[in-house]
Design a protein around this nucleic acid. Structure first.
Lengths: 287, 287
DNA sequence: CCCTGTCATACCTGTTAGGTATCACCCAAG
DNA sequence: CTTGGGTGATACCTAACAGGTATGACAGGG
């Protein structure tokens, strides 16, 4: 039984995403004919039909669907191996840091917690160098999987901890962030339903897995943009309690009574065996 | 940045395991010079020194150690992708089963539970075909990782659930299995310390991660062998309660008061998205 | 009916994976 | 000190194959 090559996986995944050999070849920086041949050869070697072709297009068989999912995981693991190996190379260089960890954090979230964690860990005599890598919305999982990060702060129920080892750090409630002058801002508490359909004040929308959920609210790319839209009275947003750290004077935070609590975890790939990581996790759980 | 090829990974891992280019080349079925060159090229492409060479041998740098671990995970993911794709190929063949799941079970363990699970699941109108794959000691994790299995019954604290999704099924105590005629077999309960150092009756040893822990007891390969050695009065073993199912007349089971409870879980790769798997898990948790 | 867009085929070429022969080197035995 | 066995590296060759260009086959829409 022959081994699947990464190049073949990369080709197939691109074709499966585009469902179009020409565009896929373009994305791969190659001509279409060799790509067609490579996929045919892959199908022959696996003894499996991956794509149904029609003059009018291409779509995936069940087996193709499977290879798309599993192949993505395999490619992630491979690039992770390369990235982490490159990163580990500095460790035994004279004068360099003993070792180094990349910590992925959702940009703007858990600022205070992160600060305390870094301070506490720096006190550890044989602490590794920590590089903090701000990530987009819910991008931490992907960063751990493909090796851009070694460890991450994740926020249940927004992030999924499936496939990672993790330790629980803190739990917090959620708040609604309203324009300071809005009538609802006078309340001492609110319910989720109160803020879901405020006339003239639609709930802001965040990308989940790269796409925006449907709805009337504005599509948000970063926190500054959101803060401004709230201050201008154009939208309202729901955030964990720790978001109070970056509120403006034109904002008012009102606790939500029935929003699910947000649990912050420190998470890392399940197979990690790094001493530096173990030290960081120990520090985090003792905070 | 160029991509790591699976062939290179396979070569490096073999060399890292053998710490000897000649033997590694032999295991890979190739000559030594091209292997040396391939590793050199890998080091150049990664920009990293993976091996320290000496005329008297080869050993791993820190980066090499990292690539050995991460590369194994990546190779497992790749072979898993190939295996699962091949397996999924039958699904849309006319006349074949709608789909198929491979369930890894430690040989001889949880017999009754397994039976109930299979019966209950077979009642499901759109049940997949289940292939039961008996695994060696603690081999289920590896089988899930490299795609030989899709789902497994695991026994904490013997198996590690790290990196998998899982649901708890049952909890049971542990028993000591003694030769029927032994003085200790008359007791109604025992403590772990009572059976750890019985004069003339050493505790049987199981392979953990492919190697046997040190000790005076016999090295066990399969249950029949163990059962015979116990019946002959040569050894004693500690097992979960459900092991009573395969006891012989010459065996006596005595409950252990202070042994950690054994928790049986059903576990699967965290990224699985199979409907058949979801159905099986639902059935299992409702038992 | 032709034109456009799609994937497949035919054929060529440069790269490279892998084989054989040999070197350079260390160490141990004499 | 010398020599031989065992190690990984180098030199060189060949065959396989990845990738490019040109073109074919075929379905739908104007």
């Amino acid at each position: 039984m022959e081994m699947l090559e990464t190049r073949e996986l990369r080709y197939f995944i691109t074709v499966a995403e585009e469902l179009h050999f020409g565009r896929a070849a373009q994305r791969l920086g190659m001509a279409q004919p060799p790509l067609s041949r490579a996929i045919q050869q892959l199908e022959r070697r696996l003894g499996v039909c991956l794509l149904r072709r029609n003059r009018r297009g291409v779509w995936l068989t069940d087996a193709g669907e499977m290879l798309l999912h599993e192949g993505r995981a395999a490619l992630d693991a491979t690039t992770a191996a390369a990235r982490r190996t490159r990163r580990a190379a500095g460790a035994d260089r004279p004068g360099g840091p003993r070792s180094r960890l990349v910590l992925a954090v959702k940009a703007g979230a858990s600022h205070e917690l992160l600060h305390k964690l870094l301070d506490a860990y720096a006190a550890d005599p044989d602490a590794a160098e920590i590089e903090v890598l701000p990530s987009g919305t819910c991008e931490q999982e992907a960063m751990l999987r493909d090796g851009r990060a070694d460890v991450a702060l994740m926020h249940a129920p927004f992030n999924s901890l499936a496939g990672f080892d993790s330790e629980e750090l803190t739990t917090e409630g959620q708040i609604a962030i309203l324009p300071a002058g809005h009538p609802l801002a006078a309340h001492s508490t609110l319910a989720l339903d109160d803020v879901r359909d405020i006339p003239g004040l639609p709930l802001a929308r965040w990308p989940r897995n790269g796409t925006y959920p449907p709805g009337p609210g504005p599509e948000i790319h970063d926190l500054t943009q959101l803060a401004q839209l709230i201050a201008l009275g154009r939208t309202v947003a729901v955030f964990p309690d720790s978001a109070r750290a970056w509120l403006w004077a034109e904002h008012t935070a009102v606790p939500l009574t029935d929003a699910p609590p947000v649990v912050t975890h420190i998470a890392w790939p399940a197979h990690s065996r790094s001493l530096a990581l173990a030290g960081l996790v120990r520090t985090a759980t003792r905070l």
